[in-house]
Design a protein around this nucleic acid. Structure first.
Length: 266
DNA sequence: CGGCCATCCTGCACGC
DNA sequence: TGCGTGCAGGATGGCC
């Protein structure tokens, strides 16, 4: 499933392939996948001026306004016609097309006249220069929440999905049920490093590696090799050999090592 | 405000 | 083998 690194990879690809293309036709095969305040044809005859990423959203900027795309779990944007599960197609004057393929149909493409406004509720970018340790410490202190659901909350911090959160908390030695404001500075520092390292490494890997995501915890490719707790319930911790535990937290499967990760509550 | 739940949707794993 | 059931996930919205 696409998390921030895969979205970043998609954006970089689109920057090289669709900027400058003019939309000649919009084809909506699955009605819920496309939203626009006005009629669908607002995008027709508009030219793509830039493609940017914000959080896990892809912003396809037009002469005016933008198409904001969220791939959710199974969405893909591809210039090659996929046989199945195409929800939206952008046809270009050049004769080329861009297909939004989405097996599970959770993904959305939304036309908005003001993309920055639409995405203004989102938290800071973890890989941005502004995301420094002192800021992160303040952010965690300001909330009194269970840390895992907090890190998944995109209005708090963007980019982390269920898999990366489990991995980052493991690397930082923090038990997922810990309360955000009680985590010691040392562990906050480790968490900050873990989040940035995991995301950056994953972006770097996707530039050169074809990752094959199949389903749930059945993840293959180099990505899987990097997973230390996610999907490893009952298997030995790579540090201490104690069996990895799986619990339900905020409706999400949560994996951690009961020995290596401390529960900070006060 | 925070925690919890359902919702969306499909494919896959599991048990009988 | 074949069927039914449950689970996985990101984001949103409703409820208490």
């Amino acid at each position: 499933m696409p998390e921030l690194p895969e979205v970043e990879t998609v954006v970089r690809g689109l920057q090289n392939t669709i900027v400058g293309e003019t939309i000649s036709e919009l084809e909506v095969a699955w009605d819920k996948a496309f939203e626009a305040e006005d009629a669908y044809d607002v995008v027709v005859n508009k030219t793509i001026r830039a493609v940017e990423r914000r959080a896990k959203y892809i912003m396809i900027k037009l002469d005016s306004g933008a198409l904001v795309v969220h791939l959710r779990m199974t969405g893909k944007l591809t210039p090659v016609y996929p046989e199945k599960h195409v929800t939206v197609t952008l046809h270009f004057r050049s004769g080329k097309s861009l297909y939004f393929q989405d097996t599970r149909k959770f993904g959305r493409m939304i036309y908005t006249p003001d993309p920055d406004d639409m995405l203004s509720h989102l938290g800071p970018e973890p890989l941005g220069d502004a995301f420094i340790i002192s800021l992160f410490r303040k952010m965690l202190k300001a909330k009194k929440r269970v840390i895992k659901p907090l890190l998944l909350d995109q209005t708090f911090l963007v980019g982390l999905g269920n898999i990366y959160v489990d991995e980052a908390l493991f690397q930082a030695g923090i038990q997922p049920e810990s309360l955000s404001h009680t985590v010691p500075a040392r562990n906050v520092e480790m968490l900050h490093t873990a989040i940035r390292t995991i995301l950056q490494n994953s972006i770097d890997a996707q530039g050169t590696t074809v990752l094959n995501f199949s389903h749930g915890d059945n993840v293959s490719g180099t990505y899987q090799a990097a997973l230390q707790v996610y999907g490893r319930e009952g298997e030995p911790c790579l540090i201490c050999d104690y069996p990895i535990k799986k619990i339900k937290l905020g409706q999400r499967g949560t994996h951690y090592c009961p020995k290596c990760q401390r529960k900070f509550r006060r």
